[in-house]
């Protein structure tokens, strides 16, 4: 479990540029959760995940990973973080070397490193034949998956991803999301920071909405998307599927429920048209 208690963080304290990024935040993430974090630019999302990953020193409050303070190396090793545009961090000559960089630094044996590279490639849906390619010969979506594989090779128990689909085309986006979904199925706890309401609707079991450094909402996505007021205050929008469902219910089909995915909207429409058969 990740346990965050009374976290407050201020940038450039005691200067004219002072800005409080997080105000007394408390939350806990259970093992096996799929948590999404949403909020407008500057709401504190990035600060929060960097503190959870142990990359920013805590000033007020505490973060514990499985009961251990995050500043301990052993606690930090349980957490993997994939930054925005992680492919910008690729630097090695070959895909294999790049993915192996972290495990080697962890001091793992050569054979263990090799096994982890293969496993990580498989998890992100890339063939082992790419191992000897230069990362810079790959497509944008492939490069991003190599970068994610570099983190997966560390076998984190908790995986934080910051906007993993930004700038990708719909096909590459879907691929990465289905791989994240698969990781979650395999038991990895996922914390997904995203601007995509569609992704939250389709994947997350729970969503935390940050606004100006405070938690505005913590609960199921379905509940969030029913609360226009919170969405508005947080600078978020309803996902396009739910927006259509709302319009349908406003257009005279009062009992049409708030549906989150396109499959769900389809099911509800079929139910509604129920009596009318194909031949009608």
């Amino acid at each position: 479990m990740i346990d965050v208690k009374n976290l407050t963080y201020t940038y450039m304290e005691k200067t004219p540029f002072e800005k409080t990024a997080l105000k007394n935040i408390s939350l806990s993430v259970d093992e096996g959760n799929f948590l999404a974090i949403a909020g407008h630019t500057g709401s504190g999302k990035s600060t929060l995940i960097q503190i959870i990953a142990g990359l920013i020193e805590i000033k007020f409050g505490s973060v514990e990973v499985d009961g251990e303070p995050v500043k301990e190396k052993s606690a930090r090793r349980n957490i993997g973080i994939v930054f925005q545009y992680p492919e910008h961090q690729l630097f090695e000559e070959t895909v294999e070397k790049d993915i192996a960089f972290g495990p080697i630094n962890f001091g793992l044996s050569e054979s263990e490193v090799a096994a982890r590279v293969d496993e990580a490639l498989k998890l992100v849906g890339l063939g082992v034949e790419l191992k000897n390619s230069s990362p810079f010969e790959l497509s944008g979506g492939q490069r991003r998956r190599v970068a994610i594989a570099g983190i997966l090779a560390l076998k984190p128990k908790y995986l934080i991803l910051d906007e993993p689909t930004a700038g990708l085309d719909p096909r590459a986006r879907k691929k990465i999301l289905s791989e994240i979904k698969n990781l979650h199925k395999l038991g990895v706890t996922i914390i997904l920071v995203t601007h995509s309401m569609e992704d939250i609707a389709a994947l997350a079991g729970r969503v935390i909405v940050l606004a100006d450094g405070e938690i505005l909402f913590d609960g199921a996505p379905r509940k969030l998307f029913a609360q226009e007021e919170i969405l508005k205050r947080a600078g978020l929008l309803t996902p396009s599927t739910a927006a259509l469902a709302k319009k349908i219910s406003r257009a005279g089909f009062e009992n049409f429920p708030l549906s989150l995915t396109i499959d769900e909207v389809e099911r509800e429409i079929l139910k509604m048209l129920g009596g009318k058969s194909k031949r009608a």
């Binding site: 909020g39 407008h40 630019t41 906007e163 700038g167 601007h195 309401m197 600078g235 978020l236 929008l237």
Partner: peptide, 13 residues
């Protein structure tokens, strides 16, 4: 050229 790729939903709008 993809002016909204990095923006939040309101920014995109």
């Amino acid at each position: 050229d993809e002016p909204t790729a990095m923006l939040d939903p309101v920014g995109r709008r």
